[in-house]
């Protein structure tokens, strides 16, 4: 097990309406070979921008990576030109998008869309690519692959389209698969099919997955490690068990207790009051301080450093400082497994 991808102190800024929106502010994490890392957060927390930065897909202008490094295979992707990135995208790192309705080209046959990457990156002939494309469709569970290669996206249902998107992403055996809300646009029964498929494929191919989502249920289903993002920063990271059963950051507490439990009776949801911060004028201290029930004076003025709680868990919160008062998490946290 080694680091496949290492991100160090990434900062991404968008210059929009005369303001500088700091979407990602000093994010660092690493991805190991073959694992699934989930990045969880609400809209505007910077999770999708982080993934786009890895892919080199930040539109410039208005966006730019202002500082930081993204190490993949020993080299820094931030310094790569678009041309160099094109050799990586779709080959070593590929992406599954949220909306399968817009991720596919409606005027191109499915087969051609899958073959595109195979011909470009693996120098296959048209016929070889076609055979491989049929195999891929079979891998993602689409019946009659040979016939369906000649169909257009509108002839597929939502779940089937997402399968095609996954087939395209897997075409060149990527080392990293970035899945940006892969099941958000799908119905629950179809979501269950796609999650099953993704787990199955990871077993078969050993691809590392970065799963970007706001749905903690999907995280519990698929991920091994979790990074919780808020206001452009990672506020807490740890293994799946650590985040769900022993979270230390009040935002993680809030996120976990604001969801109703299917298997238990909840009288009242613990809502997080207020709204997320405006990142064109990011708070000086902890971004969660204005909504945090345990906020202290220091939280408003200074961003806390990460406290290492175990080999895998890191949390950025002043409550973990030895001078801070002891605060217990809400009663609903940490009671796992029924």
């Amino acid at each position: 097990m080694g680091n496949l991808l290492e991100i160090k102190n990434l900062n991404v800024q968008f210059d929009i309406f005369g303001a500088h929106v700091q979407a990602v502010r000093g994010v660092s994490f690493e991805l190991n070979v073959g694992e699934t890392l989930a990045i969880v957060g609400e809209s505007g927390s910077g999770k999708s921008v982080t993934s786009k930065a890895i892919m080199g897909l930040i539109p410039n202008p208005p966006g730019k990576i202002t500082s930081g490094e993204i190490f993949f295979d020993g080299s820094d992707l931030v310094k790569y030109s678009q041309k160099q990135m094109q050799k990586i995208r779709g080959k070593d790192i590929s992406m599954i998008f949220q909306d399968p309705m817009t991720a596919l080209n409606p005027t191109m046959k499915i087969g051609k869309q899958i073959m595109e990457g195979l011909i470009k990156h693996q120098n296959l002939s048209k016929n070889e690519a076609k055979t491989k494309a049929a195999e891929l469709l079979k891998l993602v569970g689409i019946p009659n692959p040979d016939k369906r290669l000649d169909e257009y996206p509108h002839q597929f249902s939502g779940g089937m389209r997402q399968r095609v998107v996954i087939a395209i992403a897997l075409a060149c055996n990527p080392k990293i698969l970035i899945a940006d809300e892969p099941t958000t646009a799908l119905d629950v029964t179809i979501q269950a099919q796609i999650l099953d498929l993704m787990r199955d494929i990871q077993k078969k191919t050993g691809t590392a997955i970065i799963l970007i989502t706001h749905d903690l249920g999907v995280v519990a289903n698929l991920a091994q490690r979790v990074a919780v993002m808020y206001g452009g920063k990672i506020v807490e990271t740890g293994t799946l068990e650590e985040i769900f059963y022993n979270p230390k950051h009040p935002y993680t507490w809030g996120l976990l207790s604001s969801m109703p439990k299917l298997h238990a009776k909840t009288d009242k949801l613990l809502a997080i009051p207020g709204t997320p911060p405006d990142l064109s004028d990011p708070p000086k201290g902890c971004p969660f301080a204005p909504r945090c029930p345990h906020a202290m004076k220091v939280c408003v003025d200074h961003m806390p450093d990460y406290t290492k709680l175990s080999a895998t868990q890191k949390t950025a919160c002043w409550l973990l400082d030895e001078r801070a008062p002891k605060v217990d998490p809400p009663a609903t946290i940490g009671v796992g497994g029924e």
Binding site: V188, T189, Q191, A192, L195, D215, L216, G217, V218, V219, A220, N221, L240, E241, F244, Y245, L256, M259, K261, L262, H263, G336, G337, E338
Partner: peptide, 10 residues
């Protein structure tokens, strides 16, 4: 089919 936000249950 609903994913539950609890890894052990999942």
């Amino acid at each position: 089919a609903i994913p539950v936000a609890d890894p052990k249950v999942e």
